[in-house]
Computed example of a mutant assay.
Amino acid sequence: MTDLVSPPSVAPPPTPATLADVARLAGVSKMTASNVINGKPGMSEATRQRVLHAVEQTGYVANPAARRLAGRRSNLIGVLAPRYGVPYVTELLHGALGAAEDAGMNLAVFTTSGRVSLERERAALLRTLADGVLLILPSGDEHQMFEGAVPVVTAGSLSPYSVRGDNAHGGLLVARHLLALGHRRVAYIRGPEGVWVHREESRARERGLRDGLREGGVDLPPPYVAAGDFTEVGGERAAHELLRLPEPPTAIFAANDSAALGVLRAAEGCGVRVPGELSVVGYDDVGAAARGRPPLTTVRQPLPEMGGAAVRMLLDLVRGVSPAPPPPFPTTLIVRDSTGPPPPPSR
């Protein structure tokens, strides 16, 4: 007969401290303790110090918000981006992730799908969890959601702390390239007008294009400027409009690579040879640009470098250092097979 042996007794794990424990030790209500921990205004300094002392004594400091209020860091950088799958966003994140890993920080990416309610929900979470926040392609006033809570750096817009490429110079390079090839009928496909940062970047590229064409005595007339939305579908749609003009352009510059790839697709569908009958130029030099049919001439922004610089600037702000925002990152023209001389004039 086998003896039954009782298992050794094991002490239960300690019960995690609760908000009620903090409030009881500090001699305040749970609401007051919560307000202090979440950084709500209106608390006296004496009350704030009692609550923070109770947080330390009870171990409730394990909560990320309390840990930051107690002078400790979460070692987490939050990223708020419009959506995954956008090549611009993906390239920036490569650089941001590398810089975060080099600094021993974690990177958490949250997307909003363009929904304001989701944006506010994500922002509230990051205010609690993150030491700092990187906003990629902010649509408007997202940085105000974090004001006074955590440091913020933006990518793709002009704010007190931001990283961006030299968009106007990129447009100028495109104009000079196309003029040197002999083009006189050059069209431009804009980015979306509804989002501030997209509109400003698109307009800067257009401004550089106009300035460069003007150097060669060439105009950019209204019929040669088409609405776009930074997507391949939008670029294809805009290209069809331009190619249906009585005197269609011999070259199209799209405000980003996705739209330019849409132009290539439209040209193929219309039986227009690229570059024999139409030259196409994009912007950003994302990975898909080199895989276009034909490979796409484009303006390169150093997106991974920009993402890394954004995180390093953010880490300075987290440490209490006010860094000088970097100047616009240089842009360079990458010439591939989608541009060539215009076709000879028809007789």
Rank of each mutant, 00 (worst) to 15 (best):
R72C: 07
L209C: 03
T32F: 05
R300L: 07
S258I: 01
G71A: 14
P326K: 15
L264H: 03
P64K: 14
V197W: 00
E305C: 07
P344F: 13
V133G: 07
E56N: 15
L245F: 01
V318I: 07
L314I: 01
A11K: 06
R122K: 15
R190C: 06
L129D: 05
E232D: 07
T231W: 02
S9V: 09
R120A: 08
D211F: 04
F146G: 12
R176M: 04
P302I: 13
R72P: 02
G42M: 12
T2I: 04
A123K: 06
L126V: 05
E215D: 15
R205L: 10
S44H: 05
A227K: 12
P151M: 13
L242V: 00
G269A: 11
G114F: 00
F329D: 10
A54P: 00
T2K: 14
R207A: 10
V274G: 06
G140E: 12
I252C: 05
P345H: 15
G216E: 08
V280E: 03
M313K: 05
V51S: 14
P330H: 15
R164S: 13
L278K: 09
A54Y: 01
P327S: 13
I136R: 11
L296N: 09
P342I: 07
G42Y: 09
L4P: 00
R50A: 14
P344D: 15
S44F: 02
R184N: 04
G271S: 08
K30W: 00
A310D: 03
L315C: 02
A226Y: 01
T112M: 08
L278D: 03
S157T: 10
Q301N: 09
V263Q: 08
E193W: 03
V150L: 05
E206Q: 15
S338L: 07
